[in-house]
Amino acid sequence: MATETLGADAAAAAPGMPQLDFSTWGNQIFWLIVTLVVIYMVLSRVALPRIAGILAERQGTITNDIAAAEDLKVKAQEAEAAYDKALLDARTEAHRIVAEAKAEIQSDLDAAIAKADAEIAAKAAESEKAIADIRAGAAVAIEEVAKDTAKEIVAAMGGSADAASITAAVDARLKG
């Protein structure tokens, strides 16, 4: 709208295309060159290196982060493996301890049983010996009683017999 209000007098001054009004070319070219030089300076000195830096930094950060993530992943896998191994170790250890305890108990039990058996055997032998003693004692006593009785019977019947012959006779009888 502004150009229209200006337009009335300006249009008269510059008929046709203002682009072909060569009197303004010098001015435009001068300002264009100034503009381009300024933009070139700003871009090549400040803007482009800075943006390139930002992009490189971001690329670096992303690469580092990915590497770090991969590291952590590997570490996690290692930790998992270690955990599994520890679990396995603990389990075998537990099995070992259980087996050991079982064996120990078994050996204790075996020892106790053996000891008890031995004691029982000793006791049995002792008893047998006592019985044998008693039996032997009984046999001697019977012999004695038989000799005494035989002597008394011989005496009572009026016979006189010496002790030695009676003993021999009783012994012979006892053997027979």
Partner: peptide, 24 residues
């Protein structure tokens, strides 16, 4: 006046010389 918008105008008046500050 479809072409009037393209006219080079000096901002501070005067003639358009090579260094005049214009709308361009």
């Amino acid at each position: 006046h479809p072409m009037d918008q393209f006219i080079i105008q000096p901002i501070f008046g005067g003639d358009v010389t090579w260094y005049t500050p214009t709308n361009a």
